[in-house]
Design a protein around this nucleic acid. Structure first.
Length: 872
DNA sequence: ATGCTCACG
DNA sequence: ACGTACGTGAGCATC
């Protein structure tokens, strides 16, 4: 049978992948990008080529026979970055799991092993594919051998056949060696003829065929070129020799031994888990089927009485998708130390015993994403109390940088693999469906079991990290509160939105017409690509900034062009109004439920800083800055006639947190005296009195304050203020001299991250920053800014979460009808009956301001009105 | 599916 | 020299 042999250049591919991909890490902070790139490439090749035989060749050591020929060979090379060296053991493990042979030979490079084996295979008449990141290997191309060279991604591959090399360089494969002989190779420190590059080398070879040919006809050269060639004849020959792959190296494996049996799936899954290759694990269907799960016995109950329901139980509600406010509920599973049950939905809803148990505070429920379950049960009139454990929230507190979408993925972090991913049970896309009862029941049973089994591991981790209180006193009670807020929803005035939509459509139509007139043609204004062509090619406006796919047409770019062509301001207006119509009119209308309300979902285990996020719809980014957009807020109204909307927001909470954490005297003083912080900053930075701060000075100071919170960089500030980087750098310098405590805080945050690998908030929320010691400037800088920003943003998130719990308690304690509706990072939105308004005016600010005690006061602004728009 | 753009804090 | 402000979600165009 004809063989198909794959010969891989291990070192070269690892290097390529390392530099092509961003520095990923697994949870232990081990870098994985080279192994990942290699894996992606391998997966693709295996699928496309279906090889019968494979080998990965590695370089054996530092020196080879080439160094004896030319001492400086590969000299001047930077030593392998530690981030890459640490990956080689994992790469070996991975290749072993694929059951691919590896080979290395002292004194020889991987190239020579591949060259030797490919020659052997050619003699046998076998098909060969050589894979490398190094174009030197293309000299091996022949009628039966193709050389694949990876391009910038890892899965993007250029295939060098004899014909392709002819087309590309007008050379035969062996002439690649002559090309290197003439032009050299900087990366291998092959000298070549100084002054001869690719263009010249190709010209010479087109005329004379080889290095030898060039020198035989040396008299045809003249001037400088001749001088260079004559003076460096020796270098040319030695370079050619260095570039020649040895094809009769003493390789002691035979092609027969390279036969490829396919991967060891269990091993592969193990290695991928260790490397945290989530997307790969998810992609492969066989992860579920082929990893053997422990047997699980469970009982399906068609009747549910109190005898089953114990004092402590894991309970899981199975739902058809993430939209728990509307989706089908498929059943409930329960687990104790030694029993597992599955209960159909009808049985649950008909069981009085369950209803009582579920609402009983003394019966401990262990759940995962308890908010989803409680919000869904709420639709059936089932109220919950006694949620004692939430696996998803616990795991999120342990490490907020991971993704918490599927229970299977969460528990995988704790080495637990006995539960399938939802996608494997239901399928995805158009194929998604509820499977037969046996499969569904087992899936549900396994989830309850999982929660029970993994709970102690999560609790242990929380204790070790001293994060139990954060989890138990903050996130867990908050989940219930958020669930109630979501379930209650926010009333939206549909007619109001529809009217605004009509008005906008008229305006947009006019602007669209004007734009076509000014541009001289019709085009899709929403397409950055088409717009770019009109502005920068047809109208010849100066290009300010490019994106990787073309011209940037972002608002800041267009604003710089505003004086240059009349069409620009129309485009900006079109964008502004178009956004309002598509996202906030049409988008929002689609999200209104039958009760006339929107029911957002607050994602509580998503952000890396501890903030919430809001989806379907996102109610945390409703327009406010510009009046046209702000009008959208008129459609957010109380759910009962005569009631009012109430908004209470923290004033400068992040800078107050910074004052507290940095202990900066000037900052503390400013807040203790309730000064305008941006004016105060301007006073200190410019060294002037309050009366002498101009609006421009205040604006600049405000930008710096933002920058400080974000983890300042001169470039970022320069962009924001439209000044040069140098000016920005000086500005920052002056700021940090005026606020030495802030400077100290910045430095200490980075030191903390370098030393411990993570930073923390005031309530001991953690964020790991594995890139903080990276040799890659970008990654390291990003980690440093994150080290400065996360404690600030995260502590502010901690504080408002605490305020929400206190606020919910207060409303209950005071027996009030006022409902908390939304949280928008530093503000809380309520609806209230008018008779409770007076009380709220003191209650809300009081609760929010006393959520924590800092060394500066917290300040809350309170407002109310008939709609959200009017709370100003 | 991915990139660009833009809405919020 | 490197190339970015921190954290999000949604709609649209384009592949």
């Amino acid at each position: 049978m004809a063989k198909k042999i794959l010969l891989l250049d291990g070192n070269s591919l690892a290097y390529r992948a390392f530099f092509a991909l961003p520095l990923l890490t697994n949870e232990q902070g081990i870098h994985t990008n080279a192994v990942y790139g290699f894996t992606m490439m391998l997966q693709k090749i295996l699928e496309e080529e279906q090889p019968t035989h494979m080998i990965v060749a590695f370089d054996a050591g530092k020196t080879t026979f080439r160094n004896e020929m030319f001492g400086e060979y590969k000299g001047g090379r930077q030593k392998t970055p530690p981030e890459l060296s640490e990956q080689f053991p994992y790469l070996r493990k991975l290749i072993d799991a694929y059951r691919i042979k590896t080979y290395e030979l002292p004194n020889y490079e991987a190239d020579d092993i591949i060259g030797t084996l490919s020659l052997e295979a050619e003699k046998e008449g076998d098909e060969v594919i050589v894979i490398s990141g190094d174009k030197d290997l293309t000299q091996l191309a022949s009628a039966s051998t193709t050389v694949y060279i990876t391009r910038k991604g890892m899965t993007d591959i250029e295939k060098y056949t004899v014909d392709h090399i002819r087309e590309k360089y007008n050379l035969a494969p062996l002439q690649i060696i002559d090309m290197k002989g003439l032009m050299g190779d900087a990366s291998d420190n092959i000298p070549g003829v100084p002054g001869v590059g690719e263009k010249t080398a190709l010209k010479l070879l087109a005329a004379h065929g080889s290095v030898e040919g060039v020198y035989e006809a040396i008299d045809q050269q003249k001037g400088k070129m001749k001088e260079k060639l004559v003076a460096n004849e020796d270098l040319a020959y030695i370079s050619k020799k260095l570039a020649t792959i040895e094809r009769s190296a003493p390789v002691e494996v035979s092609i027969e031994e390279l036969s490829y049996p396919g991967p060891d799936h269990d091993e592969l899954v193990k290695v991928w888990n260790e490397l945290a290759f989530k997307s790969l694990l998810e992609k492969l269907d066989y992860t579920a089927e082929e990893t053997t799960k422990k047997e699980l016995e469970f009982e399906v109950l068609t009747e549910l009485d109190a005898s089953i329901l114990e004092d402590e139980m894991a309970i899981h509600l199975e739902m058809y998708d993430e939209q728990y406010h509307t989706c089908d509920l498929l059943g409930v599973s329960l687990a104790t130390a030694d029993k597992t049950y599955v209960v159909p939905m009808e049985t649950i809803t008909q069981s009085q015993a369950f209803k009582e148990w579920f609402a009983d505070d003394s019966k401990k429920k262990y759940m995962s994403d308890s908010k989803a379950a409680t919000a869904a049960f709420y639709r059936y009139g089932l109220g919950v109390d006694g949620v004692d454990f939430d696996l998803m929230l616990g795991a999120y507190i342990v490490n907020p940088s991971l993704t918490y979408t599927d229970l299977a993925n969460i528990v995988q972090e704790y080495g637990y693999t006995d539960v399938a991913q939802n996608e494997q049970i239901y399928g995805k896309g158009a194929k998604k469906a509820v499977p037969e009862a046996a499969i569904l029941n087992e899936h549900m049973a396994r989830k309850a079991r999982t929660i029970w089994e993994v709970r102690p591991m999560v609790l242990k981790k929380l204790q070790e990290n001293e994060q139990f209180d954060l989890y138990n006193k903050l996130e867990l009670p908050l989940a219930t509160i958020l669930g109630e807020m979501e379930s209650f929803g926010v009333k939206v005035d549909k007619e109001q939105l529809v009217e605004m939509g009509k008005d906008l459509s008229h305006k947009l139509e006019k602007i669209e017409f004007d734009i076509y007139g000014l541009a001289g043609e019709r085009f899709n204004i929403n397409s950055p690509k088409q717009l770019g062509v009109i502005l920068f090619e047809k109208l010849g406006l100066p290009v300010q900034k490019k994106t990787k796919t073309g011209y940037s047409t972002a608002a800041d770019v267009l604003e710089k062009l505003e004086g240059k062509h009349e069409v620009i301001s129309y485009i900006l207006m079109y964008r502004q109004l178009g956004k309002i119509r598509s996202t906030y009119i049409e988008g929002l209308l689609k999200e209104i439920h039958e009760d006339g309300k929107v029911h957002t979902r607050f994602q509580q285990a998503l952000t890396t800083t501890g903030r919430l996020s809001s989806i379907n719809p996102n109610l945390q980014n409703i327009p406010v800055r510009l009046e046209e957009g702000r009008k959208i807020r008129k459609a957010f109204v109380p759910s009962q006639p005569g009631w009012v909307m109430v908004a209470a927001d923290y004033s400068q909470i992040e800078l107050r947190v910074l004052a507290d954490m940095s202990k900066d005297e000037s900052l503390i003083e400013a807040f203790q005296n309730d000064m305008d912080i941006h004016t105060k900053t301007a006073m200190d930075v410019y060294g002037v009195g309050a009366e002498d701060v101009t609006p421009n000075m205040r604006r600049a100071a405000k930008a710096v304050n933002f920058g400080i919170v974000y983890g300042i960089s001169d470039y970022g500030l320069s962009q924001n203020l439209n000044i040069t980087r140098k000016e920005a750098a000086e500005f920052i310098d002056t700021y940090l001299k005026s606020f030495p405590g802030v400077k100290r805080y910045m430095d200490e945050s980075i030191q903390m991250a370098k030393k411990n690998g993570f930073v923390t908030t005031i309530m001991n929320r953690r964020r790991y920053l594995p890139d903080i010691n990276s040799s890659n400037f970008n990654l390291r800088s990003f980690a440093e800014r994150t080290a400065m920003n996360t404690p600030i943003q995260g502590s502010a998130a901690d504080i408002i979460k605490k305020a929400m719990i206190d606020m919910a308690d207060a409303l209950k304690r005071e027996n009030m009808q006022t409902r908390m509706l939304l949280q928008v990072h530093d503000e809380l939105i309520f609806e209230a009956p008018p008779n409770e308004l007076e009380k709220l005016k003191t209650l809300v600010p009081q609760a929010m301001e006393s959520a924590v005690t800092l060394n500066v006061p917290l300040k809350v602004d309170f407002a109310f009105g008939d709609t959200w728009y009017d709370t100003k």
